[in-house]
Amino acid sequence: MDTEPGEKFTYGHNTALVADFNRFIDFDNEKLTNFSDYIETNYGYKMTIPQEYINQRITVRINKKEDLKTIVQLISEMYNLNFEINDELKEVTFQ
């Protein structure tokens, strides 16, 4: 496997790809709708946000392996919203 400089490192007799360590995704003053798209793409759940929050911006670091409910609770606390997760419909609704 060919890699570019900075893509892997060797320790002892083992090799690890740097990509394996990129566990976080950062949202830096991004629209809440972009965050919503991330949730839909990576968790398969559609996020419904109240209309007045559509242009809200978010700055947050998320562990890519984080549990959906933990992320949803974080958002609800940041914006003082209640939420409901519907596993059957794969929807998260904030109100």
Score class of each variant (00 low, 15 high):
residue 56 Q to N: 13
residue 78 M to Q: 12
residue 55 N to P: 09
residue 43 Y to N: 04
residue 18 V to A: 06
residue 65 K to E: 14
residue 13 H to V: 01
residue 48 T to L: 02
residue 94 F to I: 14
residue 57 R to D: 11
residue 49 I to F: 04
residue 91 E to Q: 13
residue 95 Q to L: 12
residue 25 I to F: 00
residue 30 E to M: 11
residue 64 K to S: 09
residue 70 T to I: 05
residue 31 K to I: 07
residue 62 I to G: 06
residue 82 N to Q: 13
residue 50 P to M: 02
residue 68 L to S: 11
residue 15 T to G: 00
residue 46 K to S: 09
residue 12 G to T: 02
residue 33 T to G: 07
residue 19 A to Y: 00
residue 16 A to S: 12
residue 17 L to D: 12
residue 77 E to F: 12
residue 80 N to G: 12
residue 71 I to Q: 07
residue 76 S to L: 01
residue 89 L to H: 06
residue 52 E to F: 13
residue 65 K to I: 10
residue 1 M to D: 11
residue 72 V to T: 15
residue 75 I to L: 14
residue 60 V to E: 06
residue 88 E to T: 14
residue 14 N to L: 00
residue 73 Q to L: 07
residue 22 N to H: 06
residue 82 N to P: 11
residue 2 D to L: 15
residue 91 E to R: 08
residue 53 Y to E: 04
residue 74 L to N: 09
residue 18 V to W: 01
residue 5 P to R: 00
residue 30 E to Q: 13
residue 29 N to A: 13
residue 28 D to I: 09
residue 78 M to R: 08
residue 63 N to R: 04
residue 92 V to N: 04
residue 39 I to G: 11
residue 86 N to R: 05
residue 7 E to K: 00
residue 95 Q to G: 15
residue 93 T to G: 06
residue 47 M to N: 01
residue 17 L to E: 15
residue 69 K to Q: 09
residue 9 F to H: 03
residue 38 Y to D: 04
residue 8 K to Y: 01
residue 23 R to C: 05
residue 50 P to Y: 04
residue 86 N to E: 03
residue 37 D to H: 07
residue 16 A to D: 06
residue 86 N to H: 12
residue 31 K to Y: 05
residue 75 I to M: 14
residue 55 N to E: 09
residue 17 L to V: 10
residue 46 K to D: 11
residue 38 Y to N: 05
residue 40 E to G: 11
